[in-house]
């Protein structure tokens, strides 16, 4: 077995300098440890960032809310600050994994977790995302995979929180050798391509330090609905995050983001357009459901996800 060093972080600058030398960062470890055990992560040094000058605090800011990258999913699920407009985040955290995982898993790690694709997780399979030739899921087992083909990789993004944060127009704060920058989640997640076989644009020398959620108008409501192949402790087949605001009876804000449908969390722009400015009457909801699959190219084994997504969207809209 390859030797491994374990060190604790001292400063953020030391952490990001180490990243360029091949260090891997350890926070909750709930994804990293299985990847290490499966020999899918190769490193000679683990840097424990739980003692870094990084925060796990959830706090109000002048612009809205900030959640530190080290916030555990348990802390997010329990935070009263996330009630109201952001309540879908609490709902999503509560439905993610199990108590044992939520006690350890952090927000930063959740956003950067690697796909659950069984070909990706099998160290012996030839998988494009790992540098191989093609995606074995296309002609193989793909019932959990993406129905949009924005990438040579067909894995679906597993994070419940990522879709919710995308629906909230959140931004990640990144720190690297060049200093700090803020990137909207719309730009942070990008379907892997041949230049960059990753699901994010995070630089090799960068770390997520926080997530900023912009303030939402009073009266904004939200919901996260998750379909799993069992009632608990499963990744989403489809997860649907909805954020709405009404003026009178008219929807002036409609943000809808899905997880489980594409390689990265995806805003359902056609559905949003079908609903914006309407009263969300039956006819408008039907119109949104009809355009939900626009641009999708489901594989033979995962077209059911379209029906599932339509069902979740309809249920969510009718409940808000």
């Amino acid at each position: 077995m390859r030797p491994l060093r374990y060190v604790s972080s001292s400063t953020l600058d030391a952490v990001v300098a180490g990243l360029t030398a091949g260090d891997r960062l350890l926070a909750g470890g709930t994804d990293l440890l299985p990847l290490l055990k499966a020999d899918l992560v190769h490193t000679t040094q683990l840097v424990d960032i739980k003692r870094a000058p990084l925060s796990g605090a959830i706090q109000r800011t002048p612009g809205g809310l900030r959640i530190g990258a080290l916030a555990t999913l348990a802390a997010i699920a329990d935070s009263p600050l996330l009630d109201g407009p952001c309540s879908l985040l609490r709902q999503a955290a509560r439905q993610t994994a199990t108590v044992q995982i939520r006690n350890r898993a952090t927000l930063g790690g959740n956003l950067l977790q690697r796909p659950r694709c069984w070909y990706y997780r099998n160290s012996r399979s030839d998988c494009w995302l790992k540098g191989g030739q093609g995606c074995p899921a296309v002609e193989g087992h793909h019932e959990h995979h993406a129905i949009f083909d924005d990438s040579p990789c067909r894995a679906a993004h597993p994070s419940d929180l990522a879709g919710c944060l995308l629906a909230l127009d959140a931004a990640v704060v990144l720190y690297g050798l060049a200093g700090e920058r803020s990137v909207s989640l719309h730009d942070f997640f990008r379907a892997p391509d041949s230049e960059r076989r990753r699901e994010t644009i995070l630089g090799n020398d960068e770390i997520i330090t926080a997530v900023d959620i912009p303030a939402l108008p009073a009266g904004t409501v939200s919901i996260y609905l998750k379909a799993m192949d069992r009632k608990a402790w499963a990744f989403a087949l489809v997860g649907m995050g909805i954020v709405l605001h009404r003026t009178g009876t008219t929807l002036d804000t409609v943000h809808i983001a899905a997880t489980g449908l594409a390689q990265v969390p995806r805003r359902l722009a056609y559905c949003e357009q079908a609903l914006a400015g309407t009263t969300a009457a039956d006819v408008h909801i039907d119109a949104a459901l009809q355009v939900l699959g626009r641009g999708a190219s489901p594989l033979p084994g995962n077209a059911y996800k379209l029906d599932l997504a339509r069902g979740l969207l309809e249920r969510g809209l009718r409940s808000l």
Binding site: T30, L33, P34, A74, Q100
Partner: peptide
Amino acid sequence: CEMGNCGACTVLLDGAAVYSCLVLAVE
């Protein structure tokens, strides 16, 4: 399972339930 799926290794770490197969001893 050794991958955080089954819960048979659950212990309390500072009072919180964790899968001890997903925690490094050095932590």
